[in-house]
Design a protein around this nucleic acid. Structure first.
Length: 806
RNA sequence: GCCGGAGUGGAGAAAUUGGCAAACUCGAUGGACUCAAAAUCCAUUGUCCGCAAGGGCUUGCGGGUUCGAGUCCCGCCUCCGGCACCA
């Protein structure tokens, strides 16, 4: 091999570090560019996904720096969370010891990649200096009623004896042990993200530089539905509210359904003849998993023995309890309209209930419930109206009588942030037998996570067993009290860490608002698609909250989001369990960081999944070898006047600058790399002929400038060897000259009836008339239209002329 | 079921606006150099017919618009991802 990648990579990494090339401060005189790769969980080893992520991020950091931006690119660690605890349970080592040694290992690996960060801003979420401000943020939310504790049905794994986050439930099974998850009512902590539903939805429209599919996923997740709520009276007294998106079908209500967890159920059945049966059903539905519920197929449910009165026509309809109605959505109760709702139709069929159509289906309609539009029937005042008018009319009717009103409902639930786990940020609250829930005073933060011996999950937080931690005094009455023992979801940490980078060492405040006022919002955020909803939605929510309390000047944190594709091998995502992992660290040793980086840029479109090619890094290394040889070998330069060949190579260099610049700006790295290969190959051909020194020098400097964000070590080393004293990383990005980028001659295609029949070389500024004349004069083309009548000639100089023959 | 995204050589892919389909890289085959190998370099490499010159066909399938369609329109098929009893 012609260059020693180990030596030059170590040399330049050290230079960038000792010269603080990528350390920045606020500088109002320059345009800023805030560039963040999602901070990693410190698993202990970089995988190809990290490499891809940081290669893209570093490319932008270096490119934008050369473009004159004040670029902030920080790095940190998402170092709390279940994986650390699981690893600790397996290895016996304390999560903190494990985590911190893995941070050391991964930091070294990231530096080996040559990816440059402002390490002075490094943070780690398990550091008390960081999570102290998680606790502070929690208290800010508490003060405004946006953090609360409530009993709620949660995902419970009976084997692991712990609650699971939604994202830890895969197809109804626990992600760790594949046990079907059941729902249990437990007192849990929530952040009231639902107060922000409308803003989170509306502002998606502003995020034009986000991938459309992420915006769509968030839209679906928030799940806005327009409809109405109205009150239904119970025969014999009492009432309940229902939400519907189809108030126009109210005359078709033939029964009502309450969710099994609905608070009214107990009261309704008390002392009645169906009491035992309903109670059994409610108990059974709490016991079985979501998976079993759906697997049962038919819709189950029981009659309560009680009737409700349809407010529009006084019809007496039975009230059922059924688990196809969910307590967590709408009001937990529905009017059932089997004629226009397929789920209600199925339930009505199984339980022998009436079906009344209130929308006239088309004549050829053969299905069950008819969900489409049509004239309303069997509906008194609504008869003949189509859906939109009928909705409007009935909502007016309900409002006039004070029975109901138009209502918007969201699918989004409040964010459950408490975890019965050890390795997380303690929730800063105290339970006092006299005063109730009392926040820990801010001057007593942080509530430190104690170092304990036994952190195995037992159904309650391991912290609960630590008497020294639990027992405290009430800040209000000084009486004995007990601390909250739950810890926070790690998504709390990641919802604001990018603010902290702006003022990472502040121990007086979460941050000085003036600093993020300069840096925020992120100009670029790069990470995996798996965070499309959770992290990115929580971060948007917390940013809006910080805006509301005056700490943020922006309502949206991430101006431009990029989600990278996965690397696959053998048709599936690289993972240890599939045994198809290609360790990137080994490639640092064998091929070098530059060759690996270049391969990740080259392999395919950055947003798409792409297959790993075992020989691919050989290819990018070979390319760098050729560049190295072309630049470093001695050439015999000719002393002669400028020729067309010189102009052609210089023109190609200008076109390459244009192409690479445009491609980087639109994230098409996979097409920028071939442009550099073409330029480099042309340069190699050029020096094999009769090169002029000025042309060679000009093209080589252009090539190295363009390569420097992609393969920084090789580019810097060659730059230095050519005798340039400056630091390449801070050289200005090259410009191109449109007039020099023009090709002098181009190949013009001559078609006859759309088929290519000849190609001729013409001047690139050829006139349409001249192009047409040359085309008609072409011998080869003539052979195809001689004897026919030329109807039209379509001239698109200088690329193409199409002769249309009858 | 609903909502996204995608289907182009042996593989990864390219083709900013409708204008030479397959750039670039990998792999494969043949050759040069070498005692030999590695490395490097050169050539060929969508497919069919043909000795060749040359020609036909070709971007998942079927239609359409257009002088001209991988690209636009209509209908379908397949794959991937997300959501899924959300009233």
């Amino acid at each position: 091999m012609s260059y020693d990648h180990r030596a030059i990579e170590a040399k330049w990494q050290k230079r960038w570090e000792t010269e603080s090339t990528f350390e920045v401060t606020e500088d109002p005189t320059r345009p800023k560019f805030y560039n963040v790769c999602m901070y990693p969980y410190p698993s202990g080893a970089l995988h190809q996904g990290h490499i891809r992520n940081y290669t893209f991020g570093d490319l932008l950091t270096r490119y934008k720096t050369m473009r004159g931006f004040n670029v902030l690119s920080p790095m940190g660690w998402d170092s709390f969370g279940l994986p650390a605890e699981n690893a600790a349970i397996e290895s016996g080592a304390h999560p903190r010891i494990n985590t911190e040694s893995q941070i050391v290992t991964m930091t070294a690996q990231i530096k080996e990649l040559g990816s440059m960060y402002d390490w002075t801003r490094e943070l780690a979420s398990h550091d008390p200096a960081f999570y102290r401000w998680d606790q502070w943020l929690f208290l800010e939310l508490w003060d405004r009623g946006l953090a609360y504790k409530a009993e709620a049905p949660v995902n419970w794994c009976p084997k692991d004896q712990t609650v699971l986050a939604n994202e830890q439930v895969i197809d109804g099974l626990c992600e760790r042990c594949d046990t079907p998850v059941i729902r249990r009512n437990l007192a849990q902590w929530f952040f009231k993200i639902t107060d922000y539903s409308d803003r989170l939805l509306a502002d998606l429209e502003v995020l034009e530089d986000w991938p459309e599919r992420v915006r769509t996923m968030q839209r679906n997740w928030i799940g806005r539905s327009e409809g109405a709520v109205f009150t239904i009276e119970i025969e014999g007294g009492g009432s309940f509210d229902v939400f519907t998106t189809r108030p126009d079908t109210i005359f078709g209500m033939t029964f009502c359904v309450l969710a099994p967890e609905h608070p009214l159920v107990e009261w309704l059945i008390a002392g009645g003849e169906h009491e035992a049966a309903v109670r059994d059903y409610v108990a059974a539905s709490a016991r079985i998993s979501e998976l079993e519920r759906l697997a049962e197929g038919g819709k189950t449910g029981v009659f309560t023995g009680v009737y409700a009165i349809n407010p529009v026509n006084e019809a007496r309809v039975p009230i059922y309890v059924a688990d196809y109605v969910l307590m967590g959505y709408g009001t937990g109760a529905i009017m059932a309209v089997p004629g226009q709702d397929q789920r209600d139709w199925e339930f009505a069929r199984i339980h022998g209930l009436d079906i009344i159509r209130t929308v006239d289906p088309p004549e050829d309609w053969e299905g069950d419930a008819y969900l489409g539009d049509g004239p309303t029937i069997n509906s008194g005042l609504l008869d003949g109206l189509y859906q939109d008018d009928a909705k409007r009319r009935i909502i007016e009717w309900l409002e006039e009588r004070g029975i109901g009103k138009a209502e918007v409902t969201y699918r989004l639930r409040d964010w459950l942030i408490s975890r019965q786990r050890y390795w997380g940020c303690p929730i800063p609250m105290i339970n006092c037998p006299n005063c109730g829930l009392v926040p820990v005073p801010r001057d007593q933060l942080p509530v430190l996570l104690p170092e304990i011996e036994d952190y195995l999950p037992k159904g309650m937080s391991p912290l609960a067993a630590d008497e020294d931690f639990v027992n405290t005094t009430c800040p209000l009455c000084d009486g004995p009290a007990r601390r909250e023992t739950d810890t926070m979801d790690t998504f709390v940490d990641s919802s604001w860490y990018y603010f902290r980078y702006a003022d990472a060492h502040n121990d007086e405040a979460i941050f000085d608002p003036a600093k993020p006022a300069y840096w925020m919002p992120l100009d670029q955020y790069i990470g995996g698609i798996e965070h499309a909803v959770l992290h990115l939605l929580y971060a948007r929510f917390i940013t809006k909250f910080l805006y509301d309390i005056g700490l943020s000047t922006v309502e949206e944190p991430f101006t431009r989001l990029f989600t990278q594709g996965m690397i696959t091998l053998g048709g599936s995502k690289m993972s240890k369990s599939k045994g198809n992992v290609v360790d990137p660290v080994g490639l640092f040793a064998s091929h070098g960081a530059d060759a690996l980086r270049l391969f990740h840029l080259f392999i395919g479109p950055p947003p798409d999944d792409t297959a790993w090619n075992p020989n691919g890094v050989d290819g990018t290394r070979r390319f760098l070898e050729r560049v190295w040889r072309t630049v470093t070998e001695d050439h015999i330069f000719a002393d002669r006047a400028e020729s067309a060949e010189d102009r052609e190579l210089m023109g190609l260099a200008h076109r390459t600058v244009r192409k690479v610049t445009e491609d980087i700006d639109r994230f098409h790295f996979n097409t920028a790399v071939p442009a550099l290969m073409i330029l480099s190959n042309a340069l190699a051909d050029y020096v094999a002929g009769s090169p002029r020194k000025e042309v060679f020098d000009g093209v080589v400097t252009t090539l190295l400038l363009l390569l420097s964000p992609m393969t920084p070590h090789v580019a810097h080393e060659l730059w230095e060897r050519l005798g340039y004293g400056s630091m390449l990383a801070t050289e200005p990005w090259p410009d191109w000259d449109e007039s020099l980028a023009r090709e002098e001659t181009v190949t013009m295609v001559i078609q006859v009836n759309g088929k290519v029949r000849d190609r001729i070389s013409v001047s690139s500024d050829i006139e349409p008339g001249e192009a047409e004349r040359l085309a008609l004069a072409s011998e080869k083309a003539r052979a195809w239209f001689d004897g026919g009548q030329v109807e039209t000639v379509v001239a698109r100089p200088p690329r193409l002329v199409n002769i249309v023959v009858g």
